[in-house]
Simulated scan of single mutants.
Amino acid sequence: MKKHTSSEAILLLEDGTVYKGKSLGRIGTSGGELCFNTGMTGYQEIFTDPSYYGQLVVTTVSHVGNYGVQHEEVESDKVQISGLVCKEFSHFFSRKTAEGSLQEYFEKAGVVGICEIDTRALVRHIRDKGAMNGIVSSEITDVEELRKKLAEVPSMAGLELSSHVSTREVYHLKPDEVKFRVAVLDLGVKRNSLNNFMQRGCEVKVFPYNTPFEEMEKWNPDGYFISNGPGDPAATRDAVASVKQILAKEKPMFGICMGHQILAQANGIATYKMHNGHRGLNQPVKNLLTGKSEITSQNHGFVVDSEQLRNHPEVEITHINLNDNTVEGMRMRTKPAFSVQYHPESSPGPHDSTYLFDEFVALLEESKNNV
């Protein structure tokens, strides 16, 4: 393994705060919305999660890169983050099954980052001040020049990003024994979501984010899955239109993360940008239907308006976040549709929420038996 030589790097925040550290990944400049992830493991899954598109990820765990990378742990076909901010970045790895170092992986993917800064201070700053844009550079040392470049980075509010991460072509996956057909509206779907359907005997056909309902319906699916994805759900209008038609057809539907927010929008329930989102694999959620709690994997900066949801005659809240009481799940009262704000595929864990895939399959079976 070749020895990597770090250069100086700068992180500039939207409010003018400057951090100086060492470079990681490719030498360059990259901007995006700063967000922090509280997970202790699973960095490769985080970096390849399409929901992180357009964001600079700050890891709260001290060491990143120590177990290298391997192909099975990707959630999409490329690295999706705009850049990485961390405390200690390991250029060496100890896992025998790893296929290479995170540094080599980032260099190949063109990812820019900064390490050896006080990430605890940075996270406290973001937590208090709220989500904001930032820019990382290992090639520009002039803060004023960086400030001009940072001004060009768009705000996440009002930004449609699913078009940047969705599949361009329809594709499908088929298990050995097919029980059901599930049409997937790809707003930024993760591979492990598709794996969960395959494991349950579901053939999946994945459609681009802006596919009209009529086009998906030609395949005659038993139900629909509305995936996670990046950006502002209020700006993802094509998906909202499709979900309205799925509801009108009364086909079984399951939405996660962005899909959850799109279901709210389709019912006239507003979503809004949070002071700080939920990102990590240790978010406590209570299932109001069972009274049980689960530890969940999450990645979102927008949330459904709880007051509007509670006052809606056709929708009810099924899950709440135990840290801040925000809406984590809902279901339609008279239609076979439900959604959660978190990621039940939960790769690399925890797996408390995979039961939701079973509940959707049960809904598919019930719907098929009633035909």
Rank of each mutant, 00 (worst) to 15 (best):
V57Y: 02
V58I: 13
V58A: 00
T59F: 05
T59H: 06
V61K: 07
V61N: 14
S62T: 12
H63Q: 10
G65I: 07
Y67N: 04
Y67W: 13
Y67A: 02
Y67P: 00
G68W: 04
Q70M: 10
Q70A: 03
H71V: 06
H71A: 07
E73T: 05
V74L: 07
V74D: 01
E75V: 05
D77M: 03
D77T: 10
V79H: 02
Q80D: 14
Q80C: 13
I81V: 14
S82T: 01
S82F: 02
S82D: 09
G83N: 13
G83C: 06
L84N: 01
L84D: 07
C86S: 13
E88K: 09
E88C: 05
F89Y: 15
F89A: 10
H91E: 15
H91A: 10
F93V: 11
S94I: 14
S94W: 09
S94Q: 13
R95D: 12
K96Y: 15
K96G: 10
T97D: 15
T97Q: 15
A98I: 11
E99S: 12
E99P: 10
L102I: 15
Q103C: 12
Q103D: 12
E104L: 04
Y105P: 00
F106W: 12
F106M: 11
E107I: 01
A109F: 00
G113N: 11
I114C: 07
I114L: 13
C115E: 04
I117F: 01
I117L: 04
I117E: 08
D118E: 06
T119N: 03
T119I: 08
R120C: 02
R120K: 06
R120A: 04
A121C: 01
A121E: 12
A121G: 05
A121N: 02
V123C: 03
H125I: 01
H125Q: 12
I126N: 03
D128M: 08
K129T: 14
G130R: 07
G130E: 13
A131S: 11
A131M: 06
M132S: 09
M132L: 07
N133Q: 12
G134S: 12
I135K: 13
I135F: 07
